[in-house]
Design a protein around this nucleic acid. Structure first.
Lengths: 146, 146
DNA sequence: CAGTATCCCCCCTGATACTG
DNA sequence: CAGTATCAGGGGGGATACTG
């Protein structure tokens, strides 16, 4: 999000990714999008983000080709925000973040999903990272939200 | 990094993860740590971050159990910062970020690794995300940096 | 409901200087 | 080299009000 110093030109893919979505809100918005949210209000209510900030983020993310806007599916005059293929490409990032959080940030037995209805539509996925020799480094179940 | 509004208590693992490492510098510092950097100066030179900010970040990350400090290996009176198991657990996050950046943020033929020596020690890994039915959603080679 | 426009303030960030 | 302390500025973020 264009901090004072941008590492965009560093040529490091990690830095560039962070430049695009490495701020507090963007990944949370994208997470909600993966969870099926499409409307301005849905994002706003779920996140408790102010309208101004959400508006800016959505526009910025659209400019970067992560979201695209489409006419509202219910016939109203509003827009809906849906992930582009590039945006959906962030799925592994969300999954990795979620997995780490589950593994290291919760006390045993603590509830893990107050934000969304787990039954609904959150994609279920398994993430794996292997070293060059094929040895599995990570392997576990996960869901995007909750 | 304790923004005004913390979603820590939301119970969403993604939000908690972001609360812990979701700021501009933390993941870059962690990326460098995966690349073998251990000293204050190594981080500072590589990132172009100010001393004050780096100092704060390092202390904060240590407080969160992501880094631990050990006596300098060269006998000097300084500390070195090494990732804890919890910190190393962020490997998939870095990998996912890197993969996405490579896939969507570079023009064809553009150089991808000005920050580090690819030959050296950057861990090579493959990341995979599968849907519940075992269908592979993502599969490609990657390195942490550069 | 879906935004946009304003205002204001906090604090993150960077620069500089100082200590061991 | 490895930090800590202090200071100044700038922009992100929230709140509120307003429009269609």
């Amino acid at each position: 999000m264009v901090k004072r110093v941008s590492l965009w030109n560093a040529g490091c893919p990690v830095a560039r990714s962070l430049d695009a979505i490495g701020d507090w809100w963007s990944l949370l918005i994208i997470r909600d999008a993966f969870d099926g949210k499409r409307r301005f209000g849905e994002f706003q209510n779920g996140l408790g983000i102010s309208k101004g900030v959400l508006s800016t983020r959505l526009r910025d993310l659209a400019k970067r080709g992560i979201f695209e806007t489409v006419p509202a599916s219910d016939g109203t005059a509003y827009r809906e925000y849906v992930l582009t293929p590039k945006g959906r490409g962030l799925f592994p990032v969300i999954v990795a973040l979620r997995q780490w959080g589950e593994d290291y940030l919760f006390a045993d037995g603590e509830a893990r999903s107050s934000l969304v209805d787990r039954e609904k539509r959150a994609p279920v996925a398994r993430l794996e990272v292997r070293s060059a020799d094929g040895r599995s480094l990570v392997w576990s179940d996960t869901q995007v939200t909750g």
